[in-house]
Design a protein around this nucleic acid. Structure first.
Lengths: 332, 332
DNA sequence: CCCGGGAGATGAATCGATTCAACTCCTCAC
DNA sequence: GTGAGGAGTTGAATCGATTCATCTCCCGGG
C-alpha cells in the first residue's frame, strides 16, 4: 500500500542502492539519475521509513527529553534550547512529561530505551541515577539536566542551586529583612533542597536572621497560592519569602495581593527562582534568580552528542552560575 | 554489544520464536520455557528493539500529538486525556509543540509520517487540511483536535466555538454591559475567529450593543497584558472584555489591576475561554467558558483507534458543547 | 589498438522481531 | 497397537533502508 524504496527504484529505472544514495545526498550519483529518482518519489508520494533506517543504523535520530513539568516555562525554554541545537545536527527531540511522578518517569525511560534513542536528557525526579548509569553502560548516553550528578557515572548540565539560594536570601537580608521564609518542595528533589541549603548558608552569616521552611507538594502556582493564603491568615508573618521557583512566587503574589491587607514589597518582600519571561510581567514585577535556560538545553544536547561519539569519555559536569535580577517585589 | 532476541534464545536454550512468544505473552509457552527465557532476559539486560518491531508491524505504537502551545494548560490537559486513553491501549503519545509556527508544524508532520506513527492528533495552525487528507489517504489516520474539520476527509473532535462565543457575550450582555471588546488573535486561526463569530451573533440580538475587535498576535499572557495596558491608557473604554482564551484574560486582569485605576468587574467585566484550572485562582476569579479538555483528548484518541482499525470509515465530527462558568470577574 | 582507472550503478547481505507452516512428542480412545 | 489430535517448539521468510564489494562503461594515454 505505501511505497517503499524498491517501488521508487523500479519506477525510476534504477537500483535501490542508487535511490538510497539520492536520499542521503551521496555525491556519487549522476544528475540524470537524481532527477529520475526525485520524480519517482514525488509521483509515488514516497516517505522514508524511519524504523527501517533505524534498525540498520542501530540508533534512532531522536533524542528523548524528560522534564518534571511541561507547564513550567523554565522547562519549555530548556526544551527549546535542546531542540534548536538538535535541529542543527539533524536530530529531533521527543518530549516526555514526568509530571513529578516516578511511574511516568520510569515509563518514559523504558520507552526511550526501546526506541534506541540517540540519547536521553533528563531532569530527574526520583532517585534514578543508578538506573541512568545502567542505561549508559548499555550504550545510551544520558545527560542530567538541571541537577548536578553525584557519584554516578553520568554527565550533567546544571546551575549551582546552592549559590542561587544563597544569592536570593543574601539579597533579602541586604534589604533589611530578617524573618525569611522558604516556600517550596518536595524537599526530596535535590534541585529544591540545594536552594534551601544555600538559603541557610546566607542566614547563618547574619546575626538575628531566621529561616522558616514551608514545604509544598510541588512547584506550582496553586501551591504558591495555598502558602500565600496561609500567610495572610497568620498573626506572625515573615517579612520576606524566598519561593523555590517563579510559579510558586506568582501564586504567593496573587494570594497576598488578593487579600488586600498585605502589600508587596512593603509588608512582605518576595523573590522567585528561574526568571521565567513571565516574572517581569506580574502585578508586581518579580525579583528572581536567573538561570540560562536556553543555554542549559543547548549545552546538554552538545554534551550528549560528544558522549554518543565517544562513549569512553569520562562523565562531565557543567555548572552554570545563577544571577540575581532585581525588580519591584524586593525593593525597599 | 547490545543483546538481541537471538542472544536471549541461545542463552535460554530455546528458539527465537519461543522468546518472541514469551515477550508477547502468548499462552502457548510452557512454564519451564517461560522461566528460562525470563532469566536469560534479566541476565543479559535485554531490551526489545522497537524499531525492528515496528518495521515488521508496519506501524509504530506511538501516536503523534501536535499542539499550538505546550505552555497553555488547555493543551497539556488535552494531552493528558490522550495519554491516559493511549496507555489503556498500550500506545504512547509523542508530543510536538508547533508554537504557532507553520514550519515547526510541518516539520512535526514530516517526522511523524517517517516514524509511521499509529496516527496523528493535531490542533492545526496553518491551513493544512489538504496535507492532512493526503496523510490519511496514504494510510496515517488523522484527527483534528480543537477545530472542526470543514470539507476535507478528516475526522475532528472539537468544541462548538461559535456557541461558546455566543454564550460568553450573551452573558456579558445579560449583566447589563453594552460596549463589548473582543481580544484575541490571530484571527486567521479558525478556533479564534469562530469565537468572534459567536460573539457577533449575540451582539446582533441586542439593540444598542456594540463589539470592538482588538486583534492580538497570539493567545498568551503577555499579549493580554499588552491589550490591558492599551485599555488603561484610553479615554473611551469598553465596559466588558471577552478574551479569546484564559491566558489572554489573565494578562488583561493583571494589567487592569496593576493600574489601580480600574476595578474588575465594576469598571470592566472580564470573561475568558477554556476554564483552565488556573482560572479560579486569579486575583479576581475568572468567569470562563468551559471545554471538556481531558475528554477532548481521550475522545480524539479513541476515534483515531477506530480509524486505524477501519480506514474505510467515513470521517467523523464530534462537537462538544461548551458551558458557562460564572465567577467574580463578571458579577454585577 | 590495448589497457588502466575513474565515475556510476548494482544488488546481495544485514539489522532484529514477528509470524506461521511444519514438526515432534504425548496422551488417549478404540 | 494404531491413529487422531492437542500442546509446545522450531526456524525460515519477511519488513525496508543502508552498505559495500563488485561490475560496467567510457575516456585518454601510450
Amino acid at each position: 500500500m505505501v511505497a517503499s524504496i524498491r517501488d521508487v527504484a523500479q519506477r525510476a529505472g534504477v537500483s535501490v542502492g542508487t535511490v538510497s544514495n539520492v536520499l542521503n545526498d551521496s555525491p556519487r550519483v549522476s544528475a540524470d539519475a537524481t532527477a529520475r529518482v526525485r520524480a519517482a518519489i514525488a509521483e509515488l508520494g514516497y516517505v522514508r521509513n524511519e524504523a527501517a533506517r533505524q534498525l540498520r543504523a542501530g540508533r534512532s535520530s531522536s533524542v528523548g527529553l524528560v522534564v518534571l513539568d511541561v507547564r513550567n516555562p523554565f522547562f519549555t525554554d530548556v526544551a527549546r534550547g535542546a531542540e534548536d541545537e538538535a535541529a542543527k545536527l539533524g536530530l529531533s527531540v521527543i518530549l516526555g512529561n514526568s509530571d513529578e511522578d516516578v511511574r511516568r518517569e520510569s515509563a518514559y525511560l523504558d520507552l526511550f530505551e526501546e526506541q534506541r534513542v540517540h540519547g536521553i536528557l533528563i531532569s530527574p525526579y526520583g532517585d534514578i541515577e543508578p538506573r541512568l548509569a545502567e542505561l549508559r553502560r548499555r550504550g545510551t548516553p544520558v545527560v542530567l539536566v538541571d541537577r548536578e550528578s553525584r557519584d554516578s557515572g553520568v554527565s550533567s548540565v546544571s546551575v549551582d542551586d546552592t549559590a542561587g539560594g544563597r544569592l536570593a536570601v543574601a539579597h533579602l537580608l541586604s534589604t533589611g529583612r530578617r524573618r525569611i521564609a522558604f516556600a517550596g518542595g518536595p524537599l526530596g528533589v535535590r534541585q529544591i533542597s540545594d536552594r534551601l541549603v544555600g538559603a541557610r548558608q546566607a542566614i547563618d552569616e547574619v546575626a538575628g536572621a531566621s529561616l522558616e521552611v514551608i514545604e509544598t507538594a510541588g512547584l506550582t502556582v496553586l501551591e504558591g497560592r495555598r502558602v500565600g493564603e496561609e500567610l495572610v491568615a497568620r498573626a506572625e508573618r515573615p517579612d520576606a519569602v524566598f519561593a523555590a521557583n517563579d510559579l510558586v512566587a506568582v501564586g504567593l503574589l496573587q494570594a497576598l495581593v488578593m487579600s488586600g491587607a498585605l502589600r508587596v514589597p512593603e509588608d512582605v518582600a518576595l523573590i522567585g527562582f528561574d526568571d521565567i519571561d513571565f516574572a517581569s510581567a506580574t502585578v508586581v514585577p518579580l525579583t528572581s534568580i536567573r538561570q540560562p535556560r536556553h543555554e542549559i538545553g543547548a549545552t546538554a544536547l552538545r554534551i550528549l552528542r560528544e558522549e554518543a561519539a565517544e562513549p569512553e569519555l569520562p562523565p562531565r559536569r557543567i555548572v552554570f552560575q545563577p544571577e540575581l535580577v532585581v525588580r519591584a517585589s524586593t525593593r525597599r
